[in-house]
Write a protein that binds this DNA or RNA. Structure first.
Lengths: 142, 142
DNA sequence: GATACATCCTCTAGCCGCTAGAGGTTCAAG
DNA sequence: CTTGAACCTCTAGCGGCTAGAGGATGTATC
């Protein structure tokens, strides 16, 4: 039986985050001591590790919820889990493409700035005038 | 004189967002009609374009605030603006590196899954067991 | 001048995924 | 039996918006 603190250390998840996952129904309600403190078993440790690892790979909590559901039905075909992972891969690739465009533009800004006064600063000039940009970039909320 | 709706269309910023920028002090309080509706001039249009473009390049609202301040002092040396842009470039590069690791891992997951049942699903297996990962990846909050 | 109706106003609350802090209780070691 | 670290609940906040309720204004047309 693990305390929430031990679980926290074992999985690298903050205590508050574990309670948060319980609150939103991602983690089940654990048993309690007489005094009301949470006690976890190994199944719950595995579940939290799964969640944590999925988060590291960038899955949303909603996607993780789906994956956890799927993993409870070992006899169903696994296309669905596969589809979720593919979706995530696609998102990562899109984000990378956007960042690449940003990087190009930022690099250009920084290179062209040769350390004069603000009035002639290339950085500020580029920010003022989008038409100076070579690439399309639609970051915001990515 | 522009209405908020016109400003919204010209800059591609939602009306609510413009009001939000005013609320947090990023946009100045504009003039008003007798009836209390906002009216904007060209200086404000330029300022919002600057903000919008900076957001597209991934700058935080705080960074933009600094950049706007700097751009009001054309005689100061431009190192500071330069530094902010370099910082942003660095962040973008870090994010890209992280995403690259994620992509590798996700690709592997998806490739190894050959469409059996959930019980044998490689996707779920990898998520269950971090030690199967080849790369380090510490996404979460990136 | 009346009417219609698009656009504007303020205000509140919600999104994601946590994180922090106040103020109080429980547990385990010595 | 005392200490003090770790636990508890609850509320509020982060960034950067976004959505909706419920009402006022502005402009074009008749």
């Amino acid at each position: 039986m693990l305390t929430i603190g031990t679980l926290s250390k074992k999985t690298g998840t903050k205590v508050q985050t574990i309670r948060y996952y319980e609150q939103i129904g991602l983690m089940p309600e654990p048993g309690r001591t007489e005094g009301g403190q949470r006690r976890y078993d190994n199944a719950q440790l595995d579940r939290l590790s799964f969640i944590r690892h999925s988060r590291q790979l960038g899955f949303s909590l909603d996607a993780i919820r789906e994956l956890l559901d799927l993993s409870d039905h070992p006899n169903r075909p696994c296309d669905e889990a596969d589809a979720i992972a593919r979706r995530q891969l696609k998102q990562v690739e899109q984000r990378m493409a956007r960042l690449k465009a940003l990087r190009t533009e930022l690099k250009r800004m920084v290179h062209e700035c040769s350390g004069g006064r603000m009035g002639d600063c290339k950085v500020l000039e580029v920010l003022r005038d989008h038409s100076e940009c070579l690439t399309e970039h639609e970051e915001i909320g990515a």
